[in-house]
Design a protein around this nucleic acid. Structure first.
Length: 509
RNA sequence: GCACCGUUCGUCUAGCCAGGUCAGGACGCCAGGUUUUCAUCCUGGUAACACGGGUUCAAAUCCCGUACGGUGUACCA
C-alpha cells in the first residue's frame, strides 16, 4: 500500500489575490511532492459563486509562475483527473450527497436561513448555544422528522432544501496529523454541517472530500484554520467508506506586531507586502503592493517563506528551490504560528542580490537610470554595480549608491566640506590634478600607486588628500574605493571634476 | 460561551519524541577592528525555556493545572 503515488493539491478559491500564507502552503505542498517524487495539483474551488472576483484565477497562476512553484496538473496544464475547477464538476456532487442519504449518513433539511437565525437568536438570549445536531435535529424541519411522503412532496413542489451530514451522537473521532500528532474530538460538540447548498452547489466540505478522493490525493497539507473541520472530513471519508488521506495542518502566518492571522490590512498598516504580486481590486480600484513590484527576487521570496515555519535541522539558511526540495520534510514543520519579519526578508534579498550577475542587475537598473535623466552605457553601469552591490538589498537602492559615476557633483555635502576642505586642500588638489594629468595608465592599480607614492614623498598625509579628493570626485564622503571610481569615470572626467571642485569650493582661508 | 491547536532571546528558530549541553544558530541592535570616506566585511556582546505544582538524583524536555494567544463555531473557503 505504500506503493501508492504521492499526490498533493493546492486548492485556493478565486476570491481575490493569494496572500503569502497561501503561497507558503502551496510551497510546502510542492516541496513535499517533489521530494517524494509525487504530483502537485492545482484545483480551483469556486463553489461560492457569490464571492467570485474577476482576475483572481489569473493572479494565482501568475503568482506561482513568478515564484517558481509548478503544477503537474491544473486547468491550464490539464491532466487525467480533470476538470480542475469545481464549478465544472458541479454535476458530480449531488450524486455523492444522495449516496450519503441512501446510506443514512445525511438528510434533507428544509429550514430556511431565517428560521435558523431566529432559533440561534432565541438560544443566545438564554445564553445557550444552538447546535444543529442530534440534540436538536429532531425538533427541526427535515427528512428525519418528516415522513418519506412529506419529504418527497416538499422536494417535488420545489421547496428549497439543503443536505446535511448526520453527525453521529457522542462518538470519539480519532485523527492523525503529521504535525500535531493524535487529535481526538467528541462528535457531540460538532454539528450537522451542510454538504449541499440550496443553490445546487456543494459546500467546501463535500466538494473537497469528493475531489480529493476522485483525484486520488494522498496527502492533504493545508492551513491550521481547517483543523476544526477535520473531524467532519474524516467522518465523511468513513461514511463513503473511502480511505482517508494523510493530513498535515500547517501553522498560520501571524501579523508582525501583536497576534492574529496576517491580513491584507497589516501590510498596508506596517508597510510591507502581503501579496506575492501587486493586486488591483477590480471593485474598489485599490492597489496592494506585491513582493515582485517591491523588488524582491523570487528565489529570495521563496527562501524566506520556506524558513517561516520550517527549518532544515542544521544551520543552513540559503536554499535554492532544488535544495529546499532535497531538505524538506513535514516532520520539521513547527507547530506554532510565525510572525513575518521584514528585516529578515530584506536580508534574504540582499544575499540573493549579491549573488546575481552584474549585467542582469544592470538590465534591471537601466530603467531607473533613464528615469533619472542619465544616459549610461550598459558596460559602465555593470562595472559600477559590481563595485557597490554589496551595499544594498534592492535593485532600486542601487541608484543612490552609484549615481556619482554618471553625474558630476551638483553640490558638495556641507558637513564633509566643513570637515575635510582645509586651508591646504586647494593647493594640494591642484597639485594632484597636475600629477594625474601626466599619468598615461589610468587603471585603479596604477593611479593608486602613483598617488600614494606622491603623498608619501610630499608627506601630505593620506587622510588629508584622499578625503578632499573624494569630496571633489563624488561630492560627499561616500562610495567605494576611490581609485576604482576614477578608473571607471576616466581620466578626463576625473580632471574636470577636480577643476569644478576647485572652482566651487575655492581656497579656504 | 463551547471545541480544537499553540506558548524557547524583540523576530525566525535548534534542542523536546528516546530527561543530564555554560539552552545553540540566524536577523535586528550595541561595541570594537579593518578602510582614504560611507557601506560591506570580521570579531565580540546583548537577549529566551509563559506561570504553578508534580515525577526524578536531575526537567526547556515527562505528567497535571493555570494564564495568555490563535483558529473554528455561515446555505465562505
Amino acid at each position: 500500500m505504500s506503493h501508492k503515488e504521492i499526490r498533493v493539491r493546492f486548492a485556493p478559491s478565486p476570491t481575490g489575490p493569494l496572500h503569502i500564507g497561501g503561497v507558503r502552503t502551496a510551497l510546502y505542498n510542492y516541496l513535499f511532492a517533489k521530494k517524494n517524487g509525487g504530483k502537485m495539483i492545482l484545483r480551483i474551488e469556486d463553489t461560492d459563486q457569490t464571492r467570485f472576483v474577476e482576475g483572481a484565477e489569473k493572479y494565482i497562476n501568475e503568482a506561482f509562475k513568478w515564484c517558481g512553484v509548478e503544477f503537474d496538473e491544473s486547468i491550464g496544464k490539464g491532466g487525467k483527473y480533470g476538470p480542475y475547477k469545481q464549478s465544472e464538476r458541479k454535476h458530480l456532487y449531488k450524486d455523492y450527497a444522495q449516496q450519503l442519504i441512501a446510506k443514512g449518513k445525511a438528510y434533507y433539511a428544509f429550514d430556511t436561513a431565517e428560521d435558523l437565525n431566529e432559533i440561534r437568536n432565541s438560544f443566545e438570549a438564554e445564553k445557550k448555544t444552538f447546535v444543529y445536531n442530534a440534540a436538536e435535529r429532531s425538533k427541526l424541519n427535515n427528512s428525519l422528522t418528516l415522513s418519506e411522503e412529506e419529504t418527497k412532496q416538499l422536494i417535488s413542489s420545489g421547496k428549497e432544501y439543503v443536505i446535511r451530514f448526520k453527525m453521529p451522537e457522542n462518538e470519539v473521532v480519532v485523527m492523525e496529523d503529521i504535525i500535531r500528532g493524535r487529535v481526538e474530538v467528541n462528535t457531540s460538540v460538532l454539528d450537522d454541517k451542510i454538504l449541499f447548498k440550496s443553490d445546487g452547489m456543494p459546500t467546501y466540505h463535500l466538494a473537497n472530500i469528493v475531489d480529493d478522493h476522485l483525484m486520488e490525493i494522498s496527502h492533504v497539507i493545508r492551513g491550521e484554520e481547517w483543523l476544526p473541520s477535520l473531524p467532519l472530513h474524516v467522518l465523511l471519508y468513513d461514511a463513503f467508506e473511502w480511505e482517508r488521506p494523510v493530513f498535515a495542518h500547517l501553522p498560520l502566518l501571524l501579523k508582525p506586531d501583536g497576534n492574529g492571522k496576517l491580513s491584507k490590512r497589516d501590510g498596508d498598516r506596517l508597510g510591507f507586502p502581503v501579496f506575492p504580486l501587486q493586486w488591483k481590486d477590480p471593485k474598489s480600484g485599490e492597489t496592494s503592493r506585491g513582493y515582485r513590484e517591491d523588488g524582491y527576487f523570487p528565489q529570495a521570496f521563496i527562501n524566506m517563506l520556506a524558513l517561516l515555519g520550517w527549518n532544515p535541522g542544521d544551520e543552513r539558511e540559503l536554499f535554492s528551490m532544488d535544495e529546499l526540495i532535497e531538505a524538506f520534510s513535514l516532520e520539521r514543520v513547527g507547530k506554532s504560528g510565525s510572525k513575518f519579519d521584514q528585516e529578515k526578508a530584506k536580508w534574504f534579498n540582499h544575499q540573493y542580490l549579491i549573488k546575481q550577475d552584474d549585467e542582469f542587475l544592470a538590465n534591471k537598473l537601466m530603467p531607473i537610470v533613464i528615469k533619472n535623466g542619465v544616459l549610461a552605457e550598459k558596460e559602465q553601469l555593470t562595472k559600477a554595480i559590481s563595485l557597490v552591490k554589496e551595499r544594498v538589498s534592492f535593485v532600486s537602492e542601487l541608484w543612490d549608491q552609484l549615481d556619482f559615476f554618471f553625474k558630476r557633483p551638483q553640490e558638495y555635502d556641507e558637513k564633509a566640506v566643513k570637515k575635510r576642505w582645509k586651508a591646504a586642500s586647494y593647493d594640494i588638489l591642484l597639485e594632484l590634478k597636475e600629477l594625474l594629468e601626466n599619468v598615461s595608465d589610468f587603471t585603479s592599480e596604477n593611479t593608486e600607486t602613483v598617488v600614494k607614492q606622491w603623498i608619501e614623498e610630499k608627506e601630505y598625509g593620506m587622510g588629508a588628500v584622499m578625503n578632499a579628493f573624494r569630496l571633489l570626485v563624488v561630492g560627499a564622503l561616500k562610495g567605494p574605493h576611490l581609485f576604482d571610481i576614477i578608473e571607471l569615470i576616466g581620466q578626463e572626467e576625473t580632471l574636470e571634476r577636480i577643476d569644478q571642485g576647485l572652482h566651487e569650493l575655492g581656497r579656504k582661508e
